[in-house]
Design a binder for these strands. Structure first.
Lengths: 183, 183
DNA sequence: ATATATATATATCTTATTGATATATATATT
DNA sequence: AATATATATATCAATAAGATATATATATAT
């Protein structure tokens, strides 16, 4: 149900192929949402049957057809209806720094069973990884037209700002308190 | 593979039933990791076959038997080995405020299609929800013996501190910048 | 006093989702 | 020239979530 809604939401900014939806969900947005091809393609097909999207097939010689999906009027209506209905649910089920699946933090919880040098190494690499993501979020160079949604809209700026804020304060905390983890 | 590791990690602090594992993962730790019964029970059974855990069945009249699982020596070895091997993977796959599945933030991204009053209401409720979780994290009253792992160990304090930090800065950002979302 | 809700406790089943793999070609890099 | 990466779609097995069924005890509200 959500998968449909997310794909439709991304299609509101213009027609896209399944590959482009995946691409978009692999940019800065990847920090808050991801979908695999195994989810995207079946969902697109299902929505085609339900007439929530239409599909224009571009023939390409020797390559498989490029299938460009557009949201239909029925789809737009369904999307807005569904967004409204699920808003109170999405509010709680989501996570942005208050509900956060984290294998890294589980590793820290269990770190007493890890060689102390490994724990140190893991934290170093984690900080590096976090800083790479920060850089990706703050990057202001050219983007594909798909990524413009994260740039030029107030919603996109808000999200980028929030994520930057959360990640930075996480990095700060780890740097200041890592010494308190048992040695 | 991870499910096994997480269950074993929780069993290192003492024998537990499947229900108690679920309980523990529904406390403050729920913010970073959760498992459903549909995952816990089959995993426990699989690990019993593999002799990573042992099981003491307590007969109870008229109630189903209480099955208490303990980590075996083989299990402890497997756990430590696996923790070490997967550490470099868990480092990246995890999310704590830098990679964060968030239906709430997707809702914000799509909020232009939501009635403006709804967006406002959603943000208000979200802030309330976040503050409830903060209170839960900072709560210092009595806990079940299972929860002690999050209290009395340096790892537990570190996690609680990090989560508190991340959530607080998220709340701050939202309060200061919500006016910038289109009206 | 009684009804209702919540907590304890295990288990199964359908559905959703991931992650891996297969296929095919163009383009960029070494 | 060789290799790696990007474009592009699709399927499938393995994993995991979420719902539901079952059974009882206890706490709370009417």
């Amino acid at each position: 149900m959500q998968t449909e809604c997310i794909c439709l939401g991304l299609l509101t900014t213009g027609p896209k192929s399944g590959y482009e939806i995946k691409q978009f969900l692999s940019g800065p947005l990847n920090q808050i949402m991801s979908l695999s091809f195994g989810t995207i393609y079946p969902t697109l097909n299902k929505m085609l049957t339900d007439e929530l999207v239409s599909c224009k097939q571009k023939a390409q010689d020797k390559k498989p057809d490029k299938k460009i999906y557009s949201i239909t009027k029925k789809g737009q209506k369904w999307f807005e209806q569904n967004l409204l209905e699920s808003s109170s649910e999405w509010l709680r089920s989501g996570n942005y720094g208050d509900q956060v699946k984290s294998e890294f933090l589980m590793l820290i919880l269990f770190s007493e069973y890890l060689p102390k040098e490994t724990t140190n190494l893991v934290i170093n690499e984690r900080l590096l990884f976090a800083k790479q993501i920060l850089a990706l979020l703050q990057y202001d160079g050219p983007v594909t037209q798909t990524g413009a949604q994260m740039r030029n809209t107030p919603q996109g700026s808000f999200l980028r700002g929030l994520m930057t804020n959360i990640i930075s304060s996480g990095i700060d905390y780890i740097e200041k308190n890592r010494n308190k983890l048992g040695k």
